[in-house]
């Protein structure tokens, strides 16, 4: 298994606060690939876990490698595109998708649909709520729904654009986010990963609301193959 973390903003950084320690204990020597074409800027300091400015994937890989865990970190300083998705998302991967646009969610879900064995855990949030979707393929069969199921037409037909296919000058300003919501979504993503490893993953989606402190897991009836 190789672990890929795509998108290193608020949720991705929250995932990286605890995932490496767990992986070092459970899978010593494993490789973690960090993918993001964006850069850490001084204005991001409240949500980032490194003071190093520059490309997010390269900065985080440098910091995490210094922790001397028995892990290897590889930085891919690129946004995901239809071209590089083929080489970056591969058989047997565990993919933590922490991006800020539905176009990339669709791209990665579609790529996973081409693979026989893969686990994709995708998190997204608004200011105080969010959700986590889990797309698990095993032996060429969908064990859970793709991100692009009929229940999420906003991902099936995204209105936004993949930043990898936009010019730098057209990248949108990031909107304000609440760190607590990023952390809550990241925690649910990690819980789903642990349930997968333990053979107890039996849901498609989990909703999170930090104002009511509720989470709700959903197992949908319809499964598109």
């Amino acid at each position: 298994m190789r672990v890929k973390i795509v998108g290193l903003g608020g949720i991705g950084c929250a995932v990286l606060k605890t995932l490496p320690q767990f992986l070092a204990f459970r899978f010593p020597g494993i490789e973690i690939v960090l993918v993001d074409g964006d850069r850490f800027e001084p204005k991001n300091r409240d949500r980032q876990i490194t003071d190093i400015l520059g490309n997010k994937a390269e900065s985080l890989a440098e910091v995490l490698q210094k922790q001397r865990l028995e892990l290897w970190f590889e930085a891919v300083p690129e946004f995901l595109t239809p071209q590089n998705a083929i080489t970056l998302i591969r058989e047997g991967d565990a993919v933590f998708l922490c991006v800020d646009n539905h176009a990339t969610r669709k791209l990665v879900s579609d790529r996973c649909q081409e693979l026989k064995d893969v686990i994709l855990i995708s998190g997204g949030n608004e200011f105080t709520d969010g959700n986590v979707q889990v797309f698990w393929r095993q032996n060429g069969q969908n064990r859970t729904l793709p991100l692009t199921s009929e229940f999420h037409p906003e991902i099936l037909s995204p209105a936004d654009k993949n930043p990898g296919e936009m010019g730098c000058d057209r990248l949108a300003e990031s909107e304000p986010q609440l760190l607590f919501t990023n952390n809550a979504v990241a925690t649910v993503m990690l819980n789903a990963f642990y349930a997968f490893l333990e053979g107890k993953l039996d849901y498609d989606e989990v909703y999170v609301d930090i104002l009511t402190n509720n989470t709700r897991q959903v197992r949908r009836e319809s499964v598109s193959q």
Binding site: G9, C98, V99, G124, N125, E126, D129, N182
Partner: peptide, 9 residues
Amino acid sequence: FVRESGRKG
């Protein structure tokens, strides 16, 4: 009432 997926990350 199905909520859309969170957009931000």
